[in-house]
Design a protein around this nucleic acid. Structure first.
Lengths: 227, 227
DNA sequence: GCAAAAACCTACCAGCCGGTAGGATTCTAA
DNA sequence: TTAGAATCCTACCGGCTGGTAGGTTTTTGC
């Protein structure tokens, strides 16, 4: 158990964009000293690797190589492989949760609030962490970590259900089976990592808009139409 | 490579229902001789195990134990672990494909044909093979097998898109982005294995109906209503 | 300049698990 | 009854990979 400074939960934008995460490490020959940034780089790199090869097909050696570092170095930033996956979960869920919490203070019609959340949701699952959010197996986490992740997911689910109910009240959303609708929405979005590729023509936001349109209008032709 | 009789692709109903697949093996003390049935039992048991513990967390010894058999016996029915996964894929996809092909001869409105397919789809993903269809990683299959599975999945996707287009023509489905709608539909259904448990109140068919209703009606309130 | 902390590496271990060799048992056909 | 096929088991191997021990290098604080 190496002593570590207070750990940041959210991957910094600095670590998020760089194509080669190794640049975070050495700057010329100088050994950099920012623990938090490097830790985030480790997690980010792991997420990408998991997405490409799956959790079990990704060795810690491979992640280390990607960072141009050796395996034990990873253990300097993270307790074990399991925690690596856990951090990916959390980092991926965070933006959705904050989007959801932000909407609680809004006074806009529920349908609009829901759409805003869904847009953020789409962006999250389309990110490098998307794989972890959606495809990673809970069995690969120990009981305590698994239940933590589960709790976060439940919060998201409940948040969406609440927005749907609010929509029923304020009339912006047609009456429907709240539970099933939440599942359908989440399912459609969660499936994005299966087919979306970075280079795709559509951005995550555009995908979200397309889905929102589909869910709002419905497949059965409407009698009257308004633009 | 042990010589095997012509291999059946579809899991027999006999093997599908039994709670303990071991009953397929011994009947009293008599050693049964039906290769096909036992092979299906192996696949079925594997599917269940994969669903519960994931592919990589399921050892062949565990599957063998479930069947009250030793590991080498499994190799008598299947070449290796990879093929085991492959067969689960195929067994799960089959009913969806047949449903899709059946609809090609139908003259009903496309929306109804689509709904019929979706209902079968829901049943498939809710089955023991659902996990494989949706959560198993293609990286765990070799290139040839992976592309075979991918081809089947593409066929399903294309089939759904075609039904949507047909619906546009015959007026039973409102104009929409076909590709995105197909993704949304598939995603909603594919998410079922994540939350559905056997003991759930709703049957797979009921879930399908609920989803169909949501997708048909849409979330935006409709002006006129007809029951 | 020097001690202490931080960051990182080399070298290694051990358990798990997919896969196999080769033989034993049981059934079927004749 | 018996040959041969079908079915299954015991015993084993070896590679991969998560994880660690313990030392080395670099940086910081003073």
């Amino acid at each position: 158990m190496a002593a570590r400074p207070a750990r940041p939960r959210i991957a910094t934008a600095a670590a998020a964009n760089g194509a080669d995460s190794a640049s975070v490490w050495r700057e010329g020959r100088k050994r950099l000293r920012d623990h938090a940034v490097k830790r985030d780089a480790v997690i980010q790199t792991a997420a990408r690797a998991f997405r490409e090869n799956g959790f079990h097909n990704t060795s810690l050696d491979a992640i280390a190589a990607q960072l141009e570092v050796t395996k034990p170095t990873i253990y300097y930033y993270v307790a074990n492989k399991e925690q690596l996956l856990f951090e990916c979960f959390v980092a991926g869920l965070q933006p959705i949760l904050t989007a959801l919490r932000d909407q609680k203070t809004s006074t806009a019609p529920a349908r609009e609030r829901l759409n805003a959340v869904l847009r953020q949701y789409a962006q999250a699952v389309a990110s490098d962490f998307g794989w972890c959010l959606v495809r990673a197996e809970h069995q690969d986490l120990s009981a305590p970590m698994s239940s933590q992740v589960r709790a976060l997911k439940v919060e998201i689910d409940q948040g969406i259900r609440r927005l749907l109910k609010d929509g029923h009240k304020d009339g912006s959303i047609a009456p429907c089976d709240v539970k099933m609708t939440a599942f359908a929405l989440a399912g459609a979005l969660n499936w994005i990592p299966h087919w979306y590729r970075e280079k795709q023509a559509l951005s995550a936001a555009q995908i979200a808009d397309a889905f929102v349109a589909i869910f709002e209008e419905g497949l059965r032709p409407r009698a009257a139409r308004r633009s």
